[in-house]
Simulated assay, not measured.
Amino acid sequence: MALGDPYGTLQDLKDRLSIVDTDDDAELTSALAAASRGVNRFCNRQFNKTTTATGRQFDATTATLLLVDDFHTTTDLVVDGTAYDSSVHVLEPLNGMVDGEPGWPYWRIRNAGGDYTTSATVTVTAQWGWAEVPASVTEAALITAMEITKLSDAPFGVQGNAEMGLIRIRENHRISSMLAPYRRRAVAVA
């Protein structure tokens, strides 16, 4: 999947909603795209990938630390005009693992052999994104797309009447907990 693609397929969403015709394909495609962008905003990252390296500019966090967008491979990696060299650039998270889970992209570059302060900004050329979209991300996007689709049945957030009164739709905490490990927090620099 390329950067910007939805995290699930139209057919996956239709299967979950037991839809066999094509009458609602445009609405479902839109819901899936909106859900995927919502996942990106919640997590502050993009989970698909590019297969062609492109350059982006970043401000150095410290003299030896550069926080960058996620990238999934060292192929074609160039940092500040220098091809990736493992004796100079230490990529983190180490071994692509977070909390014992493999498959994470790199998003921190430590410069063991130089000083990032020599540049106003540092250009990094990489293949951006994740090698594979995590299953929890795909699941969260599909569940959210289902909820978006069903919102037309719940005007003003009211799903229906129950014996005890109106039933209101609330934020889905299950989705939040599924995505919490993938949430990238903003870094405050003093």
Rank of each mutant, 00 (worst) to 15 (best):
T64Q: 14
G100N: 12
W107D: 08
K150S: 06
A140T: 00
V79Q: 13
F71T: 01
I19T: 11
V187H: 04
T75N: 15
E92A: 14
N161Q: 15
I167D: 07
D23Y: 07
V124H: 12
V133M: 03
L17A: 10
V122E: 03
T62C: 02
L13R: 09
T64K: 15
P93I: 10
C43L: 00
W107N: 07
P181Q: 11
T75M: 09
S176P: 03
M1W: 12
F156Q: 13
E101D: 05
V158A: 11
G96T: 03
K14R: 05
K14V: 05
D153P: 03
E92R: 15
T123P: 12
W107A: 06
L142R: 09
A34D: 13
A186D: 12
H173W: 01
T125Y: 13
L94F: 15
P102K: 01
R185Q: 06
M1A: 06
R185C: 00
A33L: 10
T117F: 13
F42R: 00
R16W: 11
W107C: 02
P102M: 10
S87A: 14
D59H: 07
T52Y: 03
S86Y: 15
T117E: 05
A63L: 11
K49T: 02
R56M: 15
D99S: 12
N44S: 01
L17D: 14
L151M: 13
R56D: 11
G4F: 02
D25Q: 12
L151V: 10
V133A: 03
Y182E: 03
G103T: 08
L142P: 07
A140E: 01
S176D: 04
P134S: 12
Y84M: 09
F71D: 01
T29D: 08
N40I: 06
A112M: 09
S136T: 07
V133R: 01
F42T: 00
Y7F: 02
